[in-house]
Design a protein around this nucleic acid. Structure first.
Length: 79
DNA sequence: ATTGAGCGA
């Protein structure tokens, strides 16, 4: 299951994102989208889960992380 | 050291 995570604090990176979601499901891949030009985080990322995806979404959506409320949703197919 | 509406190569 591909999951979109928005409203991320600037302090979050790929490993942090994986750790956060790993508490509520099985993570296959976790990636924070960073600006290729400046290498700074864009404030959102994507998490791929093999199990517990819906549970993680419900558990981590609107969850407070680093002082910010995360926005978790199913990612849109890129086509 | 900075930014904040959104979906990645």
């Amino acid at each position: 299951m591909n999951i979109y995570v928005g409203n991320l604090p600037w302090s979050i990176d790929d490993a942090s994102l994986e750790q956060i979601f790993a508490e509520h499901g099985t993570i296959t891949s976790a990636k924070v989208i960073t600006d290729r030009q400046t290498n700074r985080s864009r404030g959102f990322g994507f998490v791929e889960m093999s199990d517990g995806g819906e549970n993680a979404i419900q558990a981590l959506n609107d969850a407070e992380v680093e002082g910010r409320k995360l926005v978790v949703n199913e990612s849109r197919p890129r086509d």
